[in-house]
Design a binder for these strands. Structure first.
Lengths: 131, 131
DNA sequence: CCTTGACCTTCCAGTGACTGGAAGCCTTAT
DNA sequence: ATAAGGCTTCCAGTCACTGGAAGGTCAAGG
């Protein structure tokens, strides 16, 4: 299967698939003409990578997860540890974003947003530190 | 004031301050020896930038906000529009992360996490599409 | 006066995970 | 024979810094 079919079936852009080969995540065979030739196994890995990336795992996490996926003697504890670490990071990011949202939505709510210069948002950013 | 004092008083790393000058966000004076010399106005802008960045505004948003901050004839509506746009993006990011968290925490909860290879997390990533 | 150490300067390269584009080869259909 | 489309590689750019090298400046101590 050529790269554009692999792209269609995995949902990843062809550019991304080439990049994943560059960094050693997949190793498609090559046809005589030099084109990449994806078998079911490599396609399967692309799907796996697409799902893991969609869950926000880093490429290095994906590399580790893929190695575990292909290792019949893996310990599920290793997988779970990676996933829990990532879950902690997601929770941290959500907490950070919620703190931003709280501050910013308060400022936005206080701003009348018309053509006058008076603006609590700018005051919050530039004024003296607030409690 | 030299850059390290500006860094201490603004909370930004000196490297970041130099970068902000590079991209034209601040324009500190120069002493005869070539050192940057920050007055209160430039320091104030650094504090403003630090707060805006902490709220997740992009550098280009910061540039626009700073211009409005320095414009006595601004319309607060312009500020509010930028802030609301950013708030939308924050909300979108939170929603994305919460979706990831829901999927991932479910998978993690299903994984016994011991030394056996059986692993619902990997099955979720590599298996057939789920409803 | 000299040295030491802490500053400061500029410039270059790297981060993560792609993405866009150029230049050129291959295939398929007309 | 040619035109369109797909494939290849390689280089550069994204965002907002961050690290490090090479070298100039300054204040204190001997």
């Amino acid at each position: 299967m050529n790269i554009s079919d692999a792209a269609d079936r995995s949902g990843l852009p062809a550019k991304t698939i080439r990049y994943y080969e560059d960094i050693g995540l997949v190793r498609p065979a090559r046809s005589e003409n030099g084109y990449r030739d994806f078998g079911e196994t490599e396609l399967h890995k692309l799907v796996f990578l697409g799902r893991a990336r969609a869950l926000g795992f880093t490429i290095e996490d994906c590399r580790a997860l893929l190695a575990l996926y292909e290792d019949d003697d893996r310990a599920s504890g290793d997988v779970k540890r990676i996933a829990e670490g990532h879950l902690d990071q997601i929770n941290q990011k959500i907490a950070d974003l919620e703190a931003m949202r709280a501050t910013l939505s308060h400022l936005v709510a206080c701003c009348h947003g018309d053509d006058r210069p008076d603006c609590p948002i700018l005051e919050g950013l530039g004024g003296p530190a607030q409690a």
